[in-house]
Design a protein around this nucleic acid. Structure first.
Lengths: 206, 206
DNA sequence: TTTCGAATATGACTTCACGCATAAAAACAC
DNA sequence: GTGTTTTTATGCGTGAAGTCATATTCGAAA
């Protein structure tokens, strides 16, 4: 999100993490700005019984774990490396100074938060509808519009049913069954287990 | 949220709305910054079948409907006056200029978005747990910590069960039954229909 | 005080996602 | 190729929230 050269100029440091490694834990106090350079990071709440609630699968260029930068609360979720990854991080006070000195970066950040919040509205709306189909299509629409978790050139989704379940709060079986129904209705295509989403009409989930 | 004198100095205008009146509708494009001065405003998604999903009950001083200010998308939800209210609004380009000229106001705004997003994380987490009790206590904790929708001096909640239902995606009956269970477990007190929440231990819903 | 509507409360029945079990099919390593 | 693990798939019983019906209580207004 923020240009890496800018971050480096302000004294940010790289950090390598290997697949499965925990970058930070929910509830911990912390004071870094984090941005993913390469690899993949899961931003997730892990339940007492080990159940996951994935808030986002972070891709290169995106920041994550920003809440503690703006209040003095703890991390809202745990960040786990999903693959070997490279992250860059900057101390909180330095980050805040950077924001203050760069209104353009600051504004872009505000825009990003607003966009995420807009998406969370859509998620909550579909949750409230108690309809698995709606939850899944809200997720897929969102990912599609962000061009995330899809094979760049084709329409193939590169998430497992389990990951979709963790991102929607549903169970794997429900996701599998619901997506099969959606396939039968022609809302998406499943071929040899892989999911292909046609370009969707942008709903007013806005 | 933004000082009224500042808003007025930048050319904001007051607008009176009566109870039940729609201030703006989900899906509409629009370009104002809105802030509530007096009264109460519901920020809500209204379903085809008339079912509500209340995102917030806005109290004086708070802004609402901000998303279109930062992207060119439409309103994410409908704003309805819950009582006769007075709002103040400012044209989008003027608002953006105000932000640019006032880094302190800009930063406060960013903080507010971050805080809301943090809360939405907690909501989604409790949604994913599929546990009515957790959803209700997440909501009550949040309102309590924001000192919203509670009688200022006492601990009495001034929301109907229906409103709680609309804010949690549950049905009225479920809310009534669940809250009664919570009362029996000592998590809250119900006396003559009114709900009283003791000061809660701040969970790490963070 | 009485009346009336809204909010709360409770019972009975239904439905649909859950959860477990188990099987089949890919994906991967060797 | 073979074997192993991961992912997808399907059946079935259970349970918890939804749904509908109906009291009952509360509060504001006449």
């Amino acid at each position: 999100m923020i240009d890496i050269d800018v971050l480096l100029a302000w004294g940010a440091a790289y950090k390598k993490v290997s697949a499965g490694e925990i970058i930070f834990k929910e509830g911990q106090p912390c004071s870094f700005y984090y941005q993913l350079v390469t690899g993949k990071v899961k931003w997730v709440n892990i339940d007492d019984e080990g159940k996951n609630c994935i808030h986002a699968i972070v891709e290169p260029g995106e920041s994550f774990g920003e809440f503690p930068l703006f209040d003095d609360g703890p991390f809202a979720a745990t960040a786990v490396a999903d693959e070997d990854s490279l992250i860059i991080r900057l101390h909180k006070p330095v980050f805040l100074q950077l924001m203050q000195d760069n209104p353009v970066i600051h504004f872009a950040f505000t825009q990003m938060l607003s966009k995420r919040l807009r998406y969370k509205f859509a998620v909550i709306k579909s949750f409230a509808a108690h309809c698995p189909e709606e939850m899944i299509s809200t997720l897929l629409n969102q990912l599609k519009s962000e061009k995330k978790n899809f094979c760049g050139d084709c329409n193939q989704l590169n998430l497992t049913r389990q990951q979709i379940a963790d991102m929607t709060g549903l169970r794997v079986e429900t996701v599998i069954r619901t997506m099969r129904t959606m396939h039968e209705k022609g809302d998406l295509v499943i071929s040899r287990g892989k999911v292909y989403c046609k370009d969707m009409i942008q709903r007013i989930t806005a």
